[in-house]
Amino acid sequence: MSAFNAIGEERDIDRNEFTPGIEPQPTWCPGCGDFGVLKALKQALPEVGLTPEEVLTVTGIGCSGKLNSYLDTYGFHTIHGRSLPVARAAKLANDGLEVIAAGGDGDGYGIGGNHFMHTARENHDMTYIVFNNEVFGLTKGQTSPTSPKGHKSKTTPHGNAKSPIRPLSLALTSGATYIARTAAVNPNQAKEIIKEAIEHDGFAHIDFLTQCPTWNKDARQYVPYIDVQESDDYDFDVTNRQEAQEMMFETENQLYEGTVLTGRYFVDERPSYQEQKKELGEMPEEPLAERYFDEDAEWERSYDLLERHK
């Protein structure tokens, strides 16, 4: 018998279940793209059959980090840049959980860049949503890893000399197996992409363009946007690494030239980390957390290792 009966529970789910009964007033500014992520998630989760208590939402720090304050699931609001290591360990400890990590572009591509690279490489079975607004919002508008070259802010008064990071390309070379970009202004696409990411067995990375109406006033509303799957101007195979790479490169360039390209960029069937670890005998078949509630579990003792010490 499971000690975690929210997991795998079959019942009708109302999307309002993900809205806290007394919703804390979001601290996001009016017009903030973060509302779009929240809304898309609230729609996507019931549609893929998930209940609030089988989902663990792990966030970093920044405006985006408040996501799980307004989304009623189990939540862990961690520290700047560290959502991924916390999230992937929770998944290893209890792989029945649906784990969704989220953070901003500074959080994921800057301070947490090393974790991003390695979590993608290892292909942990989870979803990672990066709220990309090209700026540090909560700390009042400093240049971030995705800010365009030349971006002026209080910390770069003469303009940013750095070229922006390429989030999609970085995810691809690191080893992510589902890579997409969507935008807060495109809620239907966002919802569908989130559903696909959750259902994907492996590390799913969504670069989610979230306009910052306060600190990114240069009309970066990410409209109009183009869905690369729907547009006749683009034709590439998301399962082909080379084609995906070229499409990502173009998408990343275009963003800074005013054309917002979105959609799915790469899907790969490489086995998830959990599957690979189980296959090697490095991870138990049953969720490890269950064992602590199993009264019949037999716990190994160091006494049985002593032969080698005698």
């Binding site: 792990v58 560290r82 290591p85 916390v86 929770a90 998944k91 290893l92 974790h115």
Partner: peptide, 17 residues
């Protein structure tokens, strides 16, 4: 950083870490 954060995540989910 990741190592200790993983211990936190695993413990949070119910494992002695």
């Amino acid at each position: 950083i990741a190592a200790a954060a993983l211990a936190v995540g695993a413990s949070h989910a119910g494992v002695k870490a």
